[in-house]
Design a protein around this nucleic acid. Structure first.
Lengths: 203, 203, 203, 203
DNA sequence: CTCTAATCGAGACGGTACGTCGCGTCTTACG
DNA sequence: CGTAAGACGCGACGTACCGTCTCGATTAGAG
């Protein structure tokens, strides 16, 4: 009962037509994500929107999730490298400004990804990766536990970004940084409370 | 020549069989949610797990989401009434303890709802309702804007609860309250900085 | 795997309510047959039209076919006793007039039965019974074979009756008798063709 | 947001697979018709018997009746062109022999169609078409009325054919022609009774 | 400058799930 | 305490997509 006998050519990434098709697929998915959620989008929808044959989709991606990856993976990775410093950087303010400036540059893309139909999937993937990276770090016995702090910072960051991108009246990067610093970064760095709390004995 | 003669939900609600069936459906969904996500669960799965006929499902609920509502709506409403005070209560500590004690009482249910396959849906619904309630409040021109604060408090609360329920080593309500107060409540109340947090008492 | 555990009371035919219900069912079916075919009519339709509960239907008849029987069986039997003489009677003219006069008296009923949604079923049952009776008769080695003659007479009779009942301009019993005699009876009695054909050699 | 995107029947008709499938469907239906009536046959039955997927059925036919059409329409049309001459041809004997010889050639098919589970449907369709054609003819004020004659000839023809195909002992085309001529054709042509029938007064 | 070979769209195909409908049986609550 | 109302399991309906496969047309390179 083999699961996959189907192995398309996975077109030689250098073929001009293939490149054009991939681009069309990405664009099509983004367009559709502005309107409906990933699960509501069918592969047939995407192929139609991209102006390619249904079967051709599978020459490039095994599933629609794979196409979303292709879209988001690199951007997501970059976003994460900009977020993680928040947890221990000395210059959190500067770091957060870098983060928001980057998102501002790619505003159109992130707007779709975080406020459109892929928001759930993106959020989940983002949290997963943050957790993964957090776990690989040296884990001093801090309080509150590092994993929960990471989780809350990551989730708050996504939520704040989504909120920002939803606003009709633009909010400046500086102002957003202030909010972020106030509500997310400082509490997480334990500077929220003046007297840095020593880890309480567990058990 | 009417097109729709299908009128469910007229069930007497007092018929013993119907009550039994509804209960079986709820239980079945909870069982399945421990294993897979809501979208992966088919109505046929639920019916089979509940030991009822596939068609019978529709006599009680138009969709599986409706069944989830039936499960979660009241509990969710209760959770929310316990969360909202965090945003302005004088006695946040007490409020948060009430919150966590309630979740602790319904630990089995909330564990499934927040760490199982319905987590995404629940989280989204929770945020939606919080936002709705927040908007109905008197809105002094605070900074940071009230809506973003609400959003972050709500999302952090869910995230923290999910983290708590996932822990293999139980964490006491008191300790959790400390973490919550530290990372979520105080920053949100703008009391983030000076007022000292003494080493949190254990137990 | 028992097929029938369901044995309703089959209400004591003398109960006044039962009698009223049976009558309502018959009427309801007749009404519906004017509009759609037997297979398109559901038992729920009939019950609703008769103003009785769905389940109650089954107290009186196991299937809708059984109800049709109840309606038609006796009338059908009577019709047949009037038709069979055509095959050998001396006084075919008189016999056919009796036949058509009877149908004329029950015009409303037969009109529904033969031109409405039960036409197919009635026709088939009629033919079946004719054939059965024909077979029980002494079978002199006639030519053409008796069974085919019976079959054709029966089918032509039904067809002619249906045609008659469909006419918007009423045709008198006398005239119809002429047509019947001409097209059906005389040929069947071998008085059709002038030169009576001797039985041809069979291979 | 269109409700119906379902567009079958665009099949290339030249695709070898499609041709094979269509053939399999025809064969399957014929097999099933030997056993049960059209209404008792489900589309799932047909698909299973044809060895194709249930859904695939609908790529080729919207209903099972449509499949029956596909089977019978052309043959039926041919049969009718052979029957209609009976009503006015000079050479009825020759015409009837052509008719029966044709049916004899396609004996297997017609045997299934006229004595199997599609008999009712076929009969009805046959009568409908005959009537239709008859109505398009010049309609001299004959007696008996042309439409009833057509109806009776058509129905008798089908009945006779069905009888013939049911016989275990084969009856020759010649002999059948004799019977047909005797019982159906001659009466219909008004050459039935020796003493020509004087036209009875109408109205 | 044909002629074979690779490629790609279109869509046929077997599936699985959907939501609807009617069946005939069984249970319950009500009058 | 019998009966109507309707809950129930069942199975067919017709639709939508899935992911795989086949095919015919369109190019592209080789003879």
């Amino acid at each position: 009962m083999s699961k996959k006998i189907f192995l398309p050519h996975l077109s030689t990434a250098s073929d001009a037509r293939a490149v054009r098709t991939r681009e069309a697929l990405r664009t099509a998915l983004l367009e559709l994500l502005e309107v409906k959620s990933l699960e509501q989008i069918t592969i047939r929808d995407i192929a139609a929107a991209a102006g390619i044959g249904y079967t051709t989709f599978f020459r490039h991606h095994p599933t629609k999730e794979s196409l979303l990856d292709d879209l988001a993976a690199e951007q997501l990775r970059r976003l994460i490298t900009l977020v993680m410093p928040m947890l221990n950087s000395q210059d959190a303010k500067g770091a957060s400004k870098s983060l928001f400036r980057y998102v501002d540059e790619e505003r159109a893309l992130w707007s779709t990804l975080l406020t459109g139909g892929a928001a759930g999937a993106l959020r989940q993937e983002f949290l997963r990766i943050c957790q993964e990276i957090g776990e690989s770090w040296p884990n001093p016995n801090t309080w509150p536990p590092a994993d929960v702090t990471t989780q809350l910072v990551a989730s708050s960051t996504v939520e704040l970004l989504a909120w920002w991108l939803r606003q009709s009246q633009p909010i400046s990067v500086e102002e957003l940084s202030e909010i972020y610093d106030h509500l997310v970064v400082m509490p997480a760095q334990g500077r929220a409370a003046p007297s840095a709390v020593a880890k309480p004995p567990r058990k």
